[in-house]
């Protein structure tokens, strides 16, 4: 992958996650509105809402992992020279890559289980596995993005731009 297409890929994943945050807010807002104005509850809005949440989080984890925006303890890192900072970053990213790869592998098992066990939504009896599968693809992209991050950290540190302000609370 060229540098440009890598960046495009990363941005796309981040936008997908961001779009889902908006969707979840909209789903809640519309549900509340319909309930209070028309005493009407959208069938399956609960199940759909929580599955959208799952999608948003896994796609978000992809973006967050790439940006180095996870919650970390910077006590040591903040007090060593840039050389050691880079070594620490490489180590941490390798651990991250390992953990998320294992997570993605075990999640596949979970998605397959949901499909095989025929789990459906409460109101409309839609199969739930497609939602889980979309969430899972988010985790797959997390593995890809962390791999890109590791590659860049090791070989092209100049391409890394972690945000100044880390995500906290």
């Amino acid at each position: 992958m060229t540098r440009h297409s890598m960046d495009r890929f990363i941005d796309t994943i981040e936008w997908i996650a961001a779009a889902f945050v908006g969707l979840v807010a909209l789903d809640i807002f519309v549900s509340v509105l319909l309930r209070n104005l028309f005493n009407y509850a959208i069938p399956d809005s609960f199940d759909i809402g929580r599955m959208l949440l799952g999608i948003l989080i896994f796609w978000g984890i992809a973006a967050t992992s790439y940006r180095g925006a996870h919650i970390t303890v910077d006590l040591v890192w903040g007090n060593v020279s840039p050389r050691y900072q880079r070594w620490i970053d490489v180590f941490a990213t390798l651990v991250l890559l390992f953990v998320v790869t294992v997570q993605t592998w075990t999640l596949f098992d979970k998605v397959r289980g949901t499909y095989r066990d025929n789990v459906t939504t409460f109101d409309m009896h839609m199969p739930t596995w497609p939602f889980f599968a979309v969430a899972w693809i988010g985790d797959v992209s997390a593995v890809l993005l962390i791999a890109i991050r590791t590659y860049r950290l090791v070989f092209h540190p100049e391409d890394m731009h972690d945000p100044k302000l880390k995500a906290t609370e």
Binding site: A25, R50, L53, G54, V102, Q103, L107, F132
Partner: peptide, 26 residues
């Protein structure tokens, strides 16, 4: 232990009550 990873990850991200976090963040 490995089953625990998939199960806990999926259950946590699809828990409706946890939706409170991204919503107030937004």
């Amino acid at each position: 232990a490995l089953k625990l990873v998939g199960q806990t990850s999926m259950r946590t991200v699809t828990d409706y009550t946890f939706g409170v976090i991204p919503m107030f963040l937004l």
